[in-house]
C-alpha cells in the first residue's frame, strides 16, 4: 500500500473577486519507505501540495489518503493525532526561539503528553542522530542554519513519524550544508524506513537523494517517474528547464532542424570510453562541446553534455546513431545560448 495517495486533489483560494487555482486535479502515489521529490518553480503550487498531505491546507476537491485512511474522514482530534505521525521541516526552520535546543526537540512529545523525563531521554538520543548532542542547552539564535535544520529534523522525528515532509528544507542553506542535510535525510530514510517527501525548486536536491520525482507546473502535475528516467529524457519543458536551470528547451530529435545542438546523457558504464574523442576520430569531423557536467543522480554518476554537431545531415544522423548504440540518451536542444 502506498504511504501517501493523492486523488484528484484540487485547491482553490478565494481572493476578492477572483479565484486562484493553486492545485488542479493532482494524482500522486508515494510508496512507503521511498524518498520522493516534488519539484517546481516558485508559485507552481508545490508548497500547497505538501501542506495538503497533512491537511494544513484542506483540499477544495479530492482526497488525501495516508496509509489508506482518507484524512477528510477524520474528526479534528483524529486529524491532530494523525498529524503528529507526519513530521515536517521547513525552509525557515521554525524553531521556538525562546526555547533551547533540547526543549525544542521535546516540544512535540510534551504536546502529546509524554512525561518530561522520558521526553528528555528520547530527545538526547535524537540529538545524537543529528550530531548535535553538544548543543542541547543552546538557544536557536546561537546556531547556524544547518544546525537549526538538524534540530528541526530531530524535533520532527520525536513523535516517531512514518512520513517526513520537507518544505524547501535546504533552500536557505549554502550548498555544502545543504548537502550534509540531504545526506542526513537519506541516512534517516534508510535507518528508520521513513517515507520522505521533499519539496524543492532545485533539481540537484532531487538528483541527490530522491528515487522518484513529480514535476509540478502551474498547479498541475506534468511529469512523474524515476529520477533517472526524467533526468535522462525529460518529456516536458518544465522538466527540461528544471534540469538545465535555464530557459533552454530540449526537443525530440525528429522535430529538430539541422545544426541545433544535442544533449547527451552518459550512463555510468559509458563514461569509461573516451567517447567524444572516438567520435571525432571515427567521423573525421570536429565536435563543439558547449557544456559538460557530471551529476550524482540517486547515487549514480551521470554525465551530461551539450554538443554542437556538424551541419551535414547524413554525418549528423550517423553520429547520433553512434551515440545511441553506445547507450547514450540523445535529445535536441533548441535555443541554446
Amino acid at each position: 500500500m502506498s504511504a501517501i495517495e493523492i486523488r484528484h486533489l484540487t485547491k482553490r483560494f478565494e481572493a476578492e473577486e477572483h479565484t486562484l487555482t493553486a492545485l488542479d486535479d493532482v494524482n500522486l502515489s508515494i510508496a512507503s519507505g521511498t524518498v520522493y521529490g516534488i519539484i517546481g518553480m516558485s508559485g507552481a503550487g508545490k508548497s500547497t501540495l505538501v501542506r495538503s498531505i497533512n491537511f494544513l491546507e484542506k483540499p477544495s476537491e479530492g482526497q488525501v489518503l495516508i496509509d489508506g485512511v482518507d484524512l477528510s474522514s477524520l474528526t479534528a482530534k483524529q486529524l491532530r493525532k494523525e498529524r503528529s505521525r507526519i513530521g515536517m521541516i521547513f525552509q525557515g526552520f521554525n524553531l521556538l526561539e525562546q526555547k533551547n535546543v533540547i526543549d525544542n526537540v521535546c516540544f512535540p512529545m510534551r504536546l502529546a503528553g509524554i512525561k518530561k523525563k522520558e521526553a528528555y531521554a528520547k530527545a538526547r538520543e535524537l540529538l545524537k542522530t543529528v550530531a548535535l548532542e553538544e548543543k542541547e542547552k543552546e538557544y536557536p539564535s546561537r546556531l547556524s542554519g544547518g544546525q537549526k535544520q538538524r534540530v528541526a529534523i530531530a524535533r520532527a522525528l520525536a513523535t516517531d513519524p512514518k512520513i517526513l515532509l520537507c518544505d524547501e528544507a535546504t533552500s536557505a542553506l549554502d550548498p555544502q550544508t545543504a548537502g550534509s542535510i540531504l545526506r542526513l535525510l537519506k541516512e534517516i530514510n534508510e535507518k528508520l524506513k521513513l517515507t520522505i517527501v521533499i519539496i524543492t525548486h532545485q533539481m540537484n536536491v532531487v538528483t541527490e537523494i530522491c528515487e522518484r520525482v513529480a514535476i509540478v507546473e502551474n498547479g498541475k502535475l506534468v511529469e512523474e517517474g524515476p529520477v533517472e528516467c526524467i533526468f535522462e529524457a525529460p518529456q516536458t519543458d518544465a522538466a527540461r528547464e528544471l534540469i538545465s536551470g535555464t530557459k533552454e528547451a530540449y526537443m525530440p530529435l525528429e522535430k529538430a532542424e539541422n545544426g541545433t545542438p544535442v544533449r547527451i546523457v552518459f550512463r555510468e558504464n559509458s563514461s569509461f570510453e573516451p567517447l567524444i574523442a572516438n567520435t571525432i576520430l571515427k567521423f573525421g569531423t570536429p565536435i563543439n562541446i558547449l557544456k559538460a557536467d557530471t551529476r550524482n543522480v540517486n547515487g549514480k554518476a551521470k554525465g551530461e553534455m551539450i554538443l554542437g554537431l556538424p551541419g551535414d545531415k547524413e554525418k549528423r544522423e550517423a553520429i547520433i546513431r553512434y551515440f545511441r548504440e553506445r547507450g547514450l540518451t540523445v535529445t535536441e536542444v533548441r535555443d541554446y545560448v
Partner: peptide
Amino acid sequence: DPGVIEAAKAMGADNLQ
C-alpha cells in the same frame, strides 16, 4: 512568527496548546 505556529499545527497541537 506564523511559521512557528504552522510548525506546531503540523505537530498536531490544538489551538489551546
